[in-house]
Computed example of a mutant assay.
Amino acid sequence: MNYIWDLLIRAEDEGFAKKDIQFHLAKDFSPYMELSPQLLNAQQLEQQVEVNPYYRYYEIFKNLFHPDNVNDLELRQYFLDFLLHFLAEIDRMQGMNKREFSIQFILREIDANVFGNTVRDNMHAFTKKEKEMVVLNILRLYQTGDEIYLLKDTMKRLFSHCMIYVKSEEQDELLLYIGQKKSAFNEMKVRLVQEIFLPVNFQMEVYWQNHFGIIGAEETMKLDRIALY
């Protein structure tokens, strides 16, 4: 990492909020690097980050920390941190394409409760990459309207060993076998995907660790491991 935007993206991937990262004027820095970590090869992300603000933003910061000015250092430090966060967001927006803008727009809409309480309240169970995957499939849903396919695709990306059966002889029904232990976070993920992608005329039954029995499929017919349908 050499840029402030790169560091903020990594911080988000590791679960940090933007406010958790604070930028400081580096005491000693290289004129060829924007970030000035004490250890160049450090793997652990630091929340207090020393920066060379003159690397790309000399015209903005050239007079902020003049050596002869020793007044209001705390205020000037706060201004530096605030402005670098702002500049990093501009950096990120300049590097985004139309799809990435759309993903961020829908994530904001979800957070604003446009998609309803169920979607908003269960979205925090997802990782950053999972959120982007779900939102990308929402965009595909707007384009294609193929709810069943996108429900299957989303579930398989979230639960790699899941199996989905469509049963429509008597009523439209989906049978979803997760293949994992039932947990609060997994339940929230299934609930959100069901809310977004399940057609209104369908019902869905969810099976977690135990598969329902299928005659002729021996792996589903083991004693004490058969779920009732």
Rank of each mutant, 00 (worst) to 15 (best):
I196E: 03
M93N: 10
E100T: 05
L192I: 14
R191D: 07
R157N: 14
K129W: 01
F82K: 14
T154Q: 04
F105A: 08
E195Y: 00
E100W: 09
M96R: 14
R157W: 13
K131V: 13
S102Y: 00
M155S: 04
D81I: 13
I110H: 05
K131H: 15
K131A: 07
S102P: 01
L158H: 06
M93R: 10
E130Y: 13
L175T: 00
F79N: 10
V206I: 15
E187Y: 12
T127K: 14
K152L: 00
I138N: 03
V166Y: 01
L141T: 03
I103V: 09
I164F: 05
V114G: 05
K182Q: 13
Q143Y: 03
L87I: 15
H161N: 13
D91E: 13
L174K: 01
Y207S: 05
M96A: 05
Q94S: 11
K156G: 11
V166C: 07
R108Y: 03
D111C: 02
K131I: 09
N97I: 07
D172T: 08
G145V: 00
K156R: 15
N113E: 14
R191F: 13
R99C: 03
K131T: 08
I90P: 05
V135P: 01
I148Y: 08
Q209V: 09
M123L: 15
E130A: 14
H85N: 14
L198V: 08
R120C: 14
R108V: 01
M155D: 07
F86N: 12
D153L: 15
E130Q: 15
G95F: 06
A125C: 05
Y142M: 06
E205K: 12
Q77N: 09
E205P: 00
M204G: 02
F126A: 10
M155C: 13
Q104W: 03
E132Y: 01
D153T: 11
Q104S: 02
L80H: 05
L83M: 15
L107S: 01
N113M: 07
L107F: 03
Q77M: 11
G145Y: 02
R140N: 02
M204K: 02
V114M: 07
F202M: 02
R92T: 08
V135E: 04
S160Y: 08
